[in-house]
Amino acid sequence: MAAALVNVPAKAKRGAVIEIKTLMSHVMETGYRHTAAGEVVPRDIITSFICRFNGTEIFRADLFPAIAANPFLSFFTTASESGRFEFEWIGDNGFVANATASITVE
């Protein structure tokens, strides 16, 4: 399982805008590079990222070869109720990684 760092505020006031930050460990090999022997290094990237809150998708991103290694994604949402964020990264060669974080809304 690849290392992931997720930062969600543990508590928030109802209706507050909160920032969610995620950092995923991945080489993001573009597929455009060659070895010293001239062979193409095969593409190996994360292709999509999905964030769900209590089962409902709230944010999605497609990723491409020009994105740097260890992609860092930050986005905003409104704290409506307490619950659980689920994060999913999907990539080449069957790459799947998951993380979760909980928030208490008062």
Binding site: A3, L5, V6, K21, T22, L23, S25, A69, N70, F72
Partner: peptide, 14 residues
């Protein structure tokens, strides 16, 4: 400065 943005922290986790 932000431990959730610093990619070096992924290595620390490992």
């Amino acid at each position: 400065d932000d431990d959730t943005a610093n990619p070096g922290m992924l290595s620390v986790l490992d």
